[in-house]
């Protein structure tokens, strides 16, 4: 569904210089494929995600979508970025183009947030807020989900739980997904394919295909 070719991407520094971040990177994504981008912090993983999401159009290269139009994209940012003055429920509905109450409440149940439906995000733990952000991303019936380190700085237990619930939400409605992480175990647990990024400027060092497992019925990737 996605074919991204980055020739190069650089940032302007405060001193007026040019700082190259990304080198040549090719990225393709199937309709129901989960691809993980793994690399050291600061290597430009998030930048790659922002380019894909259309939030950073200033790069050398091309971004092409299968149908020629940009698909519906649900983004899970590194910080939950829920509106603190709206309840979890309102946050989900506000992201939706047209209200789909059934999907929103199904997602809250899947992500184990039913009890926090009418809570303000400030009263949630970080792990719960992260799950709220995941619910919001899936609530818009996305074709593609972008996840930027969705479980970073959680304790291992909460992170594992989050990963399991994320997969459950994905199984209920499979989409393409691009997952940024620096945790190889997390990448292996969630993704079909892992791109190891590194070098200066950053490029793909290695591509790893994760063997199909029980969690992903065969033939789902296309």
């Amino acid at each position: 569904m996605l074919r991204l070719h980055v020739e190069s991407k650089s940032f302007r520094t405060a001193a007026g210089g040019v700082l190259p971040v990304l080198g040549q990177i090719d990225l393709t994504l199937g309709r129901r494929e989960i691809v993980a981008l793994v690399g050291p912090s600061g290597c430009g993983k998030t930048t790659l995600l922002r380019i894909t999401g259309g939030l950073d159009p200033a790069f050398e290269g091309t971004l092409a979508w299968a149908a020629g139009v940009m698909p519906r994209i649900g983004t899970v940012f590194q910080e939950p970025r829920l509106l603190p003055w709206r309840t979890v429920w309102q946050n989900l509905l506000l992201a939706q183009r047209s209200a789909n109450l059934k999907l929103a409440s199904d997602l809250l149940r899947t992500l184990d947030l039913s009890g926090s439906r009418d809570a303000y995000p400030g009263t949630l733990s970080l792990g719960m807020a992260r799950r709220g952000a995941i619910a919001r991303a899936f609530a818009i019936e996305p074709d593609l989900v972008l996840l930027d380190e969705p479980f970073v700085s959680l304790d291992p237990e909460a992170a594992r739980r989050g990963q399991a619930l994320l997969l459950e939400a994905w199984r209920a409605r499979p989409t393409a997904a691009l997952l940024v992480t620096h945790d190889r175990a997390e990448a292996a647990a969630l993704a079909d394919r892992i791109l190891l990024l590194g070098g200066t400027p950053t490029r793909v060092l290695e591509e790893v295909i994760v063997a199909a497992r029980a969690r992903r019925p065969a033939g789902e990737i296309s």
Partner: peptide, 11 residues
Amino acid sequence: TLDEMAVSFRM
């Protein structure tokens, strides 16, 4: 960051 969130969800 909230601005960006709103843009990404095309509110």
